[in-house]
Amino acid sequence: MSDKPLSASETAIGLLKRAGRWQIWEIALWLIAIAMIFVLPSKMLILTEITILGLFAVSLDLILGYAGIVSLGHTAFFGLGAYVAGIFARDYFSEPVTGLLVAGVVSGLFGFATSFLVLRGSDLTRLMTTFGVAMLLAELANQAAWLTGGADGLSGVTITPILGLFEFDLWGRNGYIYALVVLMVLTFIARRIVNSPYGLSLKAIKRNPVRAAMLGISPTRRIVAVYTIAAAYAGIAGALLAQTTSFVSPDVLAFHRSADVLLVLVIGGTGYLYGGIFGAIIFTVLRDWLSVITPQYWMFWIGLILIIIVMVGPERITRWQAFLPGSARAERLKARKAAEDVR
């Protein structure tokens, strides 16, 4: 802290900048993720799964944690991306990065088109419309068997090496690296977005849309934009799944996926992007462990965990991240304390 007391606006700018600064634990997380390539070569497939689920949860965090839209059908975009990537690779061009971009664009466009549905009405209306859109897509994928393979899933997807250089190997090593790189790039972009003035305006809308509108922040355009971005993210996550497994099953559009990703985000905590990634790690490890103990009934325990989380209160569970060294909240607390001391 400087000697002379700062003016309010200087303090505010300082706090905002601090919130956007790189934290130690963020860097550590990415380093660990990279180190996993060498430390756990036998667990590449589950690590890929975590990475994809993490990206999916990050995309949900964009609309839930930053725009406050409760979605019960976020898997619509995930599934759409998976199918687009799968069909694109099967029928047109099998290079994965191109497929990823195509899937992202298509999902983003679909998200843009459906974003107008979440603008109106209450939480309940949003729940129902998002849910309905997902069900509609699931039904479509099931019926259009000539295109999607129907209930049997989309098979015959062959993926050529990434950029023509790196082939997907049997152990999934390159698949993991590929997914991790995508996750890193997209998380960095998302970080930029949420720490930009635009991201701050989203937070303002989430807190109080009426007040935000009075301050000259139009909720409509911003929500449409973030919904589109989140849809594109989810589509890319789905495309990653399709490419790393070379298969798309109708399960990608199933309701339980929307529920799972909500759970992931709630475990990890909303509104700071990394919640999705931490949640994905915890959720996948937990599910893996539970499905070893009780192969058929792991759903019971997942449900129990959900209820416990809600009963205890999600804020109380996710408060741990405030104690990480250099986290934004800890810094803010420190700053506030220092400011009080000065006074």
Binding site: G303, I307, V310
Partner: peptide
């Protein structure tokens, strides 16, 4: 979240 949890438990 709570009611989804309940649904999952009842199904299992």
């Amino acid at each position: 979240l709570f009611s989804i949890g309940l649904v999952f438990m009842s199904i299992a």
